[in-house]
Structure formats: C-alpha cells, structure tokens
C-alpha cells in the first residue's frame, strides 16, 4: 500500500552509511545478519535434508555427515502420499482455509465499510470492539467453543472449523480493511453519491476495485492464519479423515515407539510449502498487512 513511499524512505535513511568503513561494516552489519539468516533458515534446511535422507543415514553420524545426503530418496514422501491420510489432510486444510477466508473477507468488507464510511451511530465503539476481539486468544475460547460445536451438532466436521476460524479472521481483516478504506479519498465516494449511485454501487464499483491490494493482503493473511491454526483443529476434530495437516502430522505420524523422522519432516515440509509459495508471490502484501495491523 505504501510500498513506493517506503522504498523512497529506505533509500534516504541509508544516506550516512558511507561514514562507516567497509571492514567495520562487515563486522557490525554483514556478519550478524548472516548469523541471523543462518539461524532463522537452518530448521528449514534440516527439515528438507531429513525428508530425503534414507533411513540408514538418518542416525549414522559416524559414516555419513548429517549435513549432507548421499543417495537422496523419495521413499518418505511416497510413504506419506500413498500410505497415510496425508493427501486428505492436505485437501481438508485447503478447503477449510479457503472457505473460512472467503466468509471472513465478505463479512469484513461490509463491516469495515460500515464502520469506516457509513459511520452509523456507535460505529466508533463497534470499531473499538472489533480491535478488542482481535486480542482475544484462541486458547481461552476453545473450551466453550468445543461445547458449542458439540451442542449444535457439528463436532468432528469441517464445518466446525470453517465457522470458528472467522472468530480470529474477521477482527483482523476488518481492522486491516478499515485502515485501507481510510486511505482511499472520500471525494471519490462523494462524486458517486452526487451522481446518484447507491451505497451498494459505491462499495462494489468504486471502493472495492480500488481496494484490491488491501483485499489481497487480508486474504492471504487470513489464509495463512487458517492454515496454521492448531488448537481448534485439535479439539474439534476426531476422525482421521477430517484432520488438518498440522493436527494430522502430529497425532497420526508420531507413533510412540519409533519416530519416523524422515516422513515426519517430509510431512512438515509439504505442509509448509503452500503457504511458503503463496508468501513468496505476495511478500509485500504480507509485510503491509502485518505492519498495517500493528500501525493501527
């Protein structure tokens, strides 16, 4: 949203780096940065290398360096895809995340428009309420929600998750879209009003086309949050075929006797890939939604 201004500021703020000599910069900037990047990325490397390591190399550190793999194998991934319910979990996660994101986006657009632009009586209080709702963590809601989910008969169905995920997606998306709508000039809307457009037409034909970046931010962020959700999925889902990837990997692939690290890591890797790919395409939207949510 403010990508161009941000870049512009970035370039300026580095204007004094010439004051530092190169060796000094290597020690104070590049070296710590490389250590940070190494530590932050190593678990992913370790995940990936374990996923393709044959079992006999996995625990034999004397004959094989643990940091590299000779004769990489796809056995773990094959096992995962053909001998476990992993594909079903993957599909469940995609389905639930897309559905929850869609519901949240639609309701959030209306709510954000009403709060930010219609400014009905009490809209400020509703806006504050939305922000407070954002601060309610799932760990204090899952017990009563479990009782409700059971009570309305959707326990152990995908619907249970599709309906409960918006509790943390709607506040976030509404808050983000409110900020985005605020950045769109009010005059555009006034012109349309004067020309006789209804509020509905203004929202659909004027505001939404201008808010596409904001919608993408809210959408991919909501998708990621749903994908990563754990405690609701763990509590509300019982049967193997309805589980999501994080729950499935942890509850079904982990057996108490033998840890099959290869397939566990393959499961973690494949389960992370969709969000990582999505992220790599929309880095700037991610950053703007994350910082947008923080900057009020």
């Amino acid at each position: 949203m403010s990508q161009s201004t941000t870049d512009h500021l970035t370039d300026n703020s580095t204007g004094m780096s010439y004051l530092d000599s190169l060796p000094r910069r290597i020690v104070t900037v590049f070296l710590p940065l490389l250590i940070f990047v190494f530590v932050l990325l190593f678990p992913f490397y370790w995940m990936a290398i374990t996923a393709v390591k044959p079992n006999f190399q996995l625990t034999d550190y004397n004959n094989y360096s643990p940091l590299w793999v000779v004769q990489p194998t796809l056995d773990h991934i094959k096992y995962l895809l053909f001998e476990t319910s992993y594909p079903a979990w993957l599909w469940n996660t995609i389905f639930i995340s897309v559905a929850a994101t869609f519901i949240s986006l639609v309701t959030s657009v209306f709510a954000a428009y009403a709060i930010e632009r219609l400014r009905f009586h009490g809209s400020r209080w509703v806006g504050l309420g939305i922000f407070l709702a954002y601060l309610v963590p799932p760990s204090i809601l899952f017990i009563p929600l479990a009782i409700m989910v059971f009570g309305i008969g959707i326990y152990d169905t995908k619907l249970a998750l599709i309906l409960t995920y918006p509790t943390f997606l709607v506040p976030f998306s509404t808050w983000l879209l409110m900020g985005y709508f605020r950045s769109i000039p009010f005059e555009l809307e006034e012109c349309a009003l004067v020309d006789g457009a209804s509020r509905w037409q203004i929202l659909i034909k004027v505001l939404l086309p201008l808010s596409v970046p904001g919608l993408i931010s809210a959408g991919i962020f909501s998708f990621t949050l749903s994908w990563n959700e754990f405690i609701y999925a763990l509590t509300f889902i019982q049967s193997s075929e309805n589980k999501t990837v994080p729950v499935g990997v942890l509850t079904e692939l982990v057996r108490s006797d033998v840890y099959e690290w290869g397939s566990l890591m393959a499961g973690a890797l494949i389960g992370s890939l969709p969000v990582v790919i999505l992220y790599s395409f929309f880095v700037d939207y991610y950053v703007s939604s994350m910082t947008g949510a923080v900057k009020e």
């Binding site: 209306f110 709510a111 709060i115 219609l118 009905f120 009563p144 509790t167 506040p171």
Partner: peptide
C-alpha cells in the same frame, strides 16, 4: 438510510462475533 444501512452491513460480522466470540467468552 446511512445508519440503517450501516447496521445492516455490520450484521454478518456482528452475528459471527457475538455468537462465536462474545458468547463463548461469557460461556467460558
């Protein structure tokens, strides 16, 4: 109309949050 429409637009989100967030908070 603005106020009525505002409440109407708020309805889906409010229903969701009241039913799946405020109520469970109280229930908890």
């Amino acid at each position: 109309g603005r106020h009525v429409l505002g409440l109407l637009f708020m309805l889906p989100a409010a229903a969701f949050l009241l039913f799946f967030l405020t109520y469970p908070l109280g229930l908890g």
